[in-house]
Design a binder for these strands. Structure first.
Lengths: 202, 202
DNA sequence: ACCTGAACACCGTTCAAGT
DNA sequence: ACCTGAACACCGTTCAAGT
């Protein structure tokens, strides 16, 4: 019992997050518990609470890792001058990621911290980096002062589709595949936004 | 202890669902537990499991109630010949409902049955009825064979916005209000879909 | 100082035992 | 036949006690 100091605080945090992400990726969000993480790294449950305020924060950190991996993939997509082509390319990348990371991505989609009204400040950039890619993707046709808003709209739209698909809410309605719906969706949004920008008055 | 027969099975189910919805509406999803429901109706926890296979099913039934109340409001919206105006009117109704039913609507947005791949068949119509309203709303400009698909796209888009807003994921990004974003969103979708339909070839 | 592990207050769920 | 309530196997979380 007692003192070990096998690892620094930073090393321990890294161990916990790696173990946590492994558990989510292989067994899903429901299998991610403090005891499971502790057992996997060979520490007691209590240790986790010296690293994280509570378990929700651990889950958010694990999800932040998954978001970073999505960003790594999205950042590789080559963008051109056609907004619709750009969005389609990003969509293909996103759907491939979601398929390759079914359980850990489902955790990002599904997890909501009970009772929380806003996300912690450190979490925001993990999403923001990918939204920034979206802004660059729509730059060719969307005016600078509308880009952020449009990127958020596109992000939220596809997010909604994925959330519903993940929960099994789409197949039941005779919907085409989520991928087909998403492609139509972003095309509508892109042409609609372009037409809106071309209107004489707002 | 033992036999009471104060209520029929149907009455008991009704009691449970009313109590469950009350709890969710006033205290939120986290407060909805089998013990809390049982205590409120004056029965033991075990009784609940003679009415529902498991607790997830109880939550889904409570959420189905909330969806029905949304439908009741949405069905009152008067629809005209302008697809954008129709969607805007439905949006106003939806946002009002979400504000009037913060906790019970958040439960619908947030709840995902762990490990489930598809929703139970009885649950589908509770969503479907509202999607049907959307289909009627877009009828003036969307061809019959595209209506369902477009209604699903619009539904999923707004859903994504609400999910993100509910989780506190939008305010952090310097976004306009969810309502403003939603209005832009459906306008883009409507004009985009109309432009798409007018294209010479698919 | 660091870490343990037992304990606390909860869950969902089951099922022998009462009426 | 209907319902109880104690029990089981879990949770997240805390904290006195060990090294």
């Amino acid at each position: 019992m007692g003192r070990r100091s096998d690892h620094t605080r930073e090393e321990l945090t890294e161990l916990v997050l790696t173990a946590g992400h492994d558990i989510v990726a292989t067994k899903g969000l429901a299998a991610l518990t403090a005891r499971a993480v502790a057992e996997r790294i060979g520490y007691s449950p209590g240790t986790i609470y010296s690293l994280f305020q509570n378990f929700d924060e651990l889950v958010l950190h694990v999800n932040a890792r998954t978001l970073d991996r999505l960003y790594d993939q999205m950042a590789k997509v080559e963008l051109g001058d056609d907004i619709t082509a750009n969005l389609e390319a990003l969509l293909v990348c996103y759907f491939k990621f979601a398929e390759d990371h079914q359980r850990d991505w489902a955790a990002v989609l599904d997890y909501t911290v009970p009772g929380r009204v806003s996300l912690p400040a450190w979490y925001t950039p993990h999403i923001d980096q990918t939204i920034a890619i979206l802004e660059r993707a729509v730059a060719p046709e969307i005016a600078p002062n509308r880009r952020r808003s449009f990127a958020l709209i596109a992000w939220a739209s596809v997010h909604g589709l994925m959330v519903l698909a993940s929960a099994g809410n789409l197949a039941a309605f005779g919907a085409p595949s989520p991928a087909d719906l998403a492609h139509d969706m972003v095309r509508y949004l892109a042409t609609g936004a372009a037409a809106d920008a071309a209107r004489p008055a707002r």
